[in-house]
């Protein structure tokens, strides 16, 4: 006998493939698979947008990482409109150069109620990228984790170069590991 379980509402707006019309320059295609098993094709270029000096890029998510709030600097730097961002998973910014382990560490840390900080390369809507130093803290109200807040600031160039090298190594190890598993 089977019990029918009502289909759960989709947790968020699904991420769609990027198209050549949306991006600036010629993008290299990458297929990204997200933690929930969904996937999409992103197009990436080498165009960097520099961090707006003196500003902070701020966003909040629910406990699943779906964006619930973002500031103007977030909108400008990501290239997406506010309407497109709200309700989308934060992985809308995931860049293929970022190792999975970095985000696994982020989620394990904030899930246990602690803050996480790290250097993150983010993907823009136009295929370009920007580096940030991000701090994610759980949004705890009356003892309950209601979501998460991320505050990003301008990273130093030297730290970005170190993160770039580290992430490249981590990614090649992740790729090797995924090759041995059929």
């Amino acid at each position: 006998m089977t019990t029918s379980i009502p289909a759960a509402a989709p947790p968020h707006r699904p991420l769609r493939d990027m198209t050549t019309e949306e991006i600036v320059g010629t993008g290299r295609p990458h297929r990204l698979t997200y933690h929930d098993g969904t996937s999409r094709t992103v197009l990436v270029t080498d165009l960097e947008t520099s961090f707006p000096t003196g500003e902070l890029i701020v966003s909040q998510t629910d406990t699943d990482g779906v964006i619930t709030m973002c500031n103007e600097a977030f909108v400008l730097m990501s290239g997406w409109s506010r309407a497109e961002l709200l309700g989308s998973p934060h992985a809308i910014l995931r860049h293929p150069d970022m190792p999975r382990a970095a985000f696994a560490d982020l989620w394990a840390t904030v899930g246990s109620g602690r803050r996480w900080s790290g250097y993150v390369k983010n993907l823009r809507r136009d295929g370009g990228f920007y580096w940030v130093y991000a701090t994610v803290i759980p949004k705890i109200r009356a003892g309950v984790i209601l979501g998460h807040t991320s505050v990003r600031r301008q990273p130093s160039r030297r730290r970005v170069e170190a993160a770039e090298a580290l992430y490249a190594t981590m990614r090649s190890e992740e790729n090797d590991a995924s090759r041995v598993q059929p």
Binding site: R115, V136, I137, K139, R141, T149, S150, V151
Partner: peptide, 11 residues
């Protein structure tokens, strides 16, 4: 205020 507190905390 809670938002501002989180933000200052993150800094």
């Amino acid at each position: 205020v809670e938002f501002m507190v989180d933000l200052m905390d993150a800094l």
